[in-house]
C-alpha cells in the first residue's frame, strides 16, 4: 500500500513548510489589501494533497509537490505583489540581505518557502525513485 521512499522524507517536510506559510501570511498581512482568502487557503488544501500523495507515492508526490507549491506561489504573488511596490517605493537597496530585510520576514518567508518547496518538488522529480521502504 505505502510506497515510501527517501523522496518521502524530502517531500513531507516541504509540504509541512508550505502549510506553515498561510499562518505567517495571515500574521503579516491580515486586514491589508494584500490578503486574500484564496492565497490563504490554497496551501492548506493543495499541500495536504501533496503530503498525502508523498506518503503514499514518492514518485508522484514529487509532481504533486511541484504543482501545489507553484500554484500556491502564484496565488500568493498575485495577492501581494503590490506590497513590493510599496516596500521599494523609496528605492532598492544594493545588497540582497538589505533587500530581504526591507521586504520583511513575513513576505520573504512565504515566498521563499513556496519557492523552495517548488524546487524540492522539481529536483525530486528527476531523482531516481529508489526502493520502497
Amino acid at each position: 500500500m505505502f510506497r515510501l521512499s527517501y523522496k518521502t522524507f524530502i517531500l513531507v517536510p516541504a509540504s509541512i513548510l508550505c502549510m506553515i506559510v498561510p499562518f505567517v501570511y495571515k500574521a503579516g498581512f491580515d486586514n491589508t489589501q494584500y490578503f486574500t482568502q484564496e492565497a490563504y487557503t490554497l496551501p492548506f488544501i493543495l499541500c495536504s494533497i501533496a503530503l498525502v500523495i508523498s506518503i503514499f507515492n514518492g514518485r508522484y508526490g514529487s509532481l504533486a509537490m511541484f504543482l501545489s507549491a507553484f500554484a500556491c506561489l502564484l496565488s500568493f504573488v498575485n495577492a501581494s505583489y503590490l506590497y513590493l511596490s510599496s516596500v521599494f517605493f523609496s528605492g532598492i537597496p544594493d545588497t540582497l540581505g538589505a533587500m530581504l530585510e526591507q521586504i520583511g520576514f513575513n513576505w520573504s518567508f512565504c515566498a521563499l518557502s513556496l519557492l523552495g518547496a517548488m524546487l524540492v518538488g522539481i529536483v525530486s522529480m528527476f531523482l531516481p525513485d529508489g526502493s520502497s521502504i
Partner: peptide, 24 residues
C-alpha cells in the same frame, strides 16, 4: 522520461507565469 518531465516542468511554469502574470 527525463525529456517528458523537463518539458512538463518548463511548460507548467510558463503556463502559470503567462496566465497569472497576464492578469497582473
Amino acid at each position: 522520461s527525463f525529456i517528458s518531465k523537463l518539458l512538463l516542468v518548463i511548460f507548467v511554469i510558463l503556463y502559470g507565469v503567462v496566465n497569472v502574470g497576464g492578469q497582473i
